[in-house]
């Protein structure tokens, strides 16, 4: 075996990437970093620092205005546009604003990524209900998003991101609307997923969470990126 773990291609690679919206200023500058398979990072930075923008590059909602970005060893550019759906099917996204479809039930919302892939309805239902129980929504399977509380919607969004066991999970403030107990529980769910190989990036403001888990941080400040070591305070508590 010549290949060892270290030589596996990176899941994500940024090379001097810049992003600007329209004619506006560059909100991300000279971004250079990579995510190894199976890694787990927090994404931090104050409001407006560009966390959502950085994630949006990774889930292919925006494309870099300069530099090179590659996902799963495929360059993100116009020529590879045809491959985008395939790439996206390997990425689970928890959007900061959830983006649930209001006229569909929780179950149907969570099932959507599987439907889009053409998976049989029968298999879908079982999987979906199982996962909804996991995030504590077994009593709200048939509820529509407008009737759900913020934290419940968030968990539906999380379930939708996890339903097809993505290779890369991008979560934008996934614990912003839940109390600490549920936040911890959800984070453990992400950790479980990470243990079976999923690469995870979680954007969060929750200092408590960051300090409780031993994961390195991708820190953004005025559009520039720094990798910081884990903020877990060993010895305290």
């Amino acid at each position: 075996m010549q290949k060892n773990k270290a030589s596996l291609p990176n899941i994500v690679e940024f090379e001097d990437v810049g992003l600007r919206y329209g004619q506006g200023p560059e909100v991300l500058k000279d971004i250079r970093f990579s995510l190894a398979p199976g890694s787990f990072h927090f994404l931090t930075g104050e409001s407006g620092a560009g966390k959502t923008s950085l994630l949006s590059l990774m889930y292919l909602a925006n494309s870099p205005t300069r530099g090179r970005l590659s996902l799963f060893d495929t360059d993100v550019n116009e020529e590879n546009r045809k491959k985008f759906p395939e790439i996206r099917r390997n990425i689970g996204v928890v959007f900061q604003d959830f983006r649930l479809l209001d006229h569909l039930t929780a179950q149907e919302n969570v099932a959507l990524p599987l439907r889009v892939m053409g998976i049989k309805e029968l298999e879908i239902k079982r999987h979906v209900n199982e996962l909804l129980s996991w995030v504590g929504l077994e009593d709200h399977i048939n509820a529509k998003p407008p009737t759900l509380a913020g934290g419940q919607k968030q968990r539906v969004a999380i379930a939708r991101a996890l339903i097809n066991r993505p290779k890369l999970l991008l979560a934008d403030e996934p614990t912003g609307n839940v109390d600490d107990r549920i936040a911890t529980r959800l984070l453990r769910l992400f950790i479980e997923l990470n243990k079976i190989g999923t690469t995870v990036v979680i954007a969060t403001h929750n200092e408590g969470l960051i300090e409780r888990f031993p994961f390195p941080r991708i820190h953004l400040s005025s559009g520039r990126l720094k990798i910081l070591p884990s903020a877990k305070m060993s010895g305290i508590k």
Binding site: A61, R89, V93, R99, L101, L112, P113, V116, R160
Partner: peptide
């Protein structure tokens, strides 16, 4: 918005 979401989840 729904179409964009469908695209983002791989449609």
């Amino acid at each position: 918005p729904a179409i964009e979401l469908l695209h983002l989840i791989g449609a």
